[in-house]
Every structure is written in structure tokens, then in C-alpha cells.
């Protein structure tokens, strides 16, 4: 395959691009293995940001600048922060899974990987003029954008005009996601006024359940709650409760 590509276009810039591609893809694989082998969730979240940045750099070498832009902003920026926020609500370390429970997932990964490798020869080679992406409707958009819409960036023309219905659907999906978050969590989260009924017992309004390992706060909270609600209520307490201190840091 690779010899094919180099043989097709013998100019030197393409070879350097190919080397860059191979280097970036190697980096991606290395980061992925590091993520799999890590136990600290904080390091994993940071490495996921690194993965997104390397992927964005690779998209730039493939001339998919719009995709690279999105990957860098969403993957490395916003989603890293959201994963950090989610991590703070859960544990800081992942518990190791015993080897006996990993054979099933390993089999699934091996079969899926082999299926993908089996499909690789069917993919069009890099820069193939007859590939589906470079023929049919794609060339049509490229030819008509200059005449019909007169916008230099064809991606914008396709996204907003030719594929306006799709983009409208995407916006509605994003809106629905925001609506779901607002309905479930509320804009202020539960900061300061957390209310829940766990097994018939009202939880206090200044604490929110977290998975943080702050043992002293959780035990004192649990003792306080079990005093009020009788013997049964300690069963209903969340794994741990940390007091919300409030205010900005």
C-alpha cells in the first residue's frame, strides 16, 4: 500500500507528509497505550487532551482544517474540563480489574480489530481521485459553490447551505443535550441546596453526594443523619457525603 502511494506521486513533499503522518499516528498509539495502562484518572484525563491535540495536528496534515479546529477546541479544551469535573465527583483512581474478567473484552477487541484490518484493503488509497469522497456529490459541491454561493470556504457552504437540514438537526441535538442537562442537574447544579429523598429520609440541603475520599466529612455527616432518622437510615445514605464549602477559591 505505502509503496503504491509513494510510487504514484514521486514528489518529495508527499514523502515528508507521509513520515509526519506515520510519526503522529505512532504518537497516538503510544498515548492510547499509556491511557490503558494508567490508574490515576487525573493523568488519564490529561492524556486524553494530549490525544485530541495530536489527532488535531494529524487532521491538519490531512488538510481537514475545520475538523482539526473542532477537535482541538472540543476534544482538548471543553471535554477535558468536563471530564475533570466528572472525575471530581467520582474517584481519583480506577480500581484494577482482575485478569479473569478481561478475557471477554479482549476477545471482542481482537475480533473487531481483525474485522477492521480485513476491511483495510477495500479502502481507497490516500489521495485517490476516484474515491467516493472525491467523486459523485463532492465534486458537484466544489463546482457549484463558486457559482451559486460564492463563498471561498466550501466547507461552510456545504455545512450551512447544501446540508442545512443536517446542521439544523445537529443544532437541535445540541439544544436537546443542554436541555437534558438543565432538567437533570439544574443550572446551579445542586450547590448549596441539594435536596433528595433517599429511602424516605430527606438529605440536608447544604451537602451534595460525591465519591471523594474525604473520610472525616463523610463519617461525621453519616453519624449526624443516622442520629435523626433511626437505625434504618444509615443504609440509605449515599457512599459518602462531603460538605459543600461554597464561595470561590
Amino acid at each position: 500500500m505505502i509503496a503504491n502511494i509513494i510510487g504514484a506521486v514521486p514528489t518529495s513533499p508527499l514523502i515528508s507528509t507521509l513520515l509526519l503522518d506515520i510519526g503522529l499516528l505512532t504518537l497516538l498509539v503510544m498515548v492510547a497505550f499509556a491511557i490503558v495502562r494508567m490508574r490515576s484518572l487525573f493523568a488519564i484525563v490529561m492524556l486524553q487532551g494530549v490525544y485530541s491535540l495530536v489527532a488535531a495536528a494529524w487532521f491538519v496534515t490531512l488538510d481537514a482544517v475545520d475538523v482539526a479546529f473542532t477537535e482541538a477546541a472540543v476534544g482538548a479544551g471543553v471535554s477535558t474540563v468536563l471530564m475533570l469535573a466528572a472525575m471530581l465527583l467520582a474517584d481519583r483512581e480506577s480500581t484494577p480489574v482482575p485478569m479473569s474478567r478481561q478475557w471477554g473484552p479482549l476477545a471482542v477487541v481482537l475480533i473487531a480489530g481483525m474485522a477492521m484490518l480485513y476491511a483495510v484493503p477495500d479502502l481507497p488509497s490516500y489521495g485517490d481521485a476516484n474515491s467516493p469522497a472525491n467523486s459523485y456529490v463532492g465534486t458537484d459541491y466544489l463546482a457549484r459553490t463558486a457559482v451559486e454561493i460564492d463563498v471561498p470556504n466550501v466547507v461552510t457552504a456545504v455545512l450551512a447551505s447544501y446540508r442545512g437540514y443536517d446542521t439544523f438537526g445537529e443544532v437541535v441535538v445540541i439544544f436537546a443535550a443542554g436541555l437534558g442537562v438543565l432538567l437533570l442537574l439544574g443550572l446551579d447544579g445542586n450547590a448549596g441546596r441539594f435536596r433528595a429523598q433517599v429511602m424516605g429520609r430527606k438529605l440536608s440541603d447544604t451537602s451534595a453526594p460525591t465519591g471523594s475520599t474525604d473520610k472525616t466529612a463523610s463519617t461525621s455527616q453519616r453519624r449526624k443523619s443516622s442520629g435523626g432518622g433511626g437505625g434504618k437510615s444509615s443504609l440509605g445514605a449515599p457512599p459518602s457525603i462531603t460538605r459543600y464549602e461554597g464561595g470561590a477559591s
Binding site: 465527583l89 438543565l182 447544579g189 460525591t210 459543600y244
Partner: peptide
């Protein structure tokens, strides 16, 4: 708005 909403919703939940 949605990106900030998701961040506010998650960020407000956790204690300092």
C-alpha cells in the same frame, strides 16, 4: 450557551 450550561451544571455540583 449549551457548553457553558453543561460546565455550570457539573461545576456547581462538586464541593471545593
Amino acid at each position: 450557551s449549551v457548553m457553558i450550561a453543561i460546565f455550570y451544571a457539573f461545576g456547581s455540583r462538586q464541593p471545593q
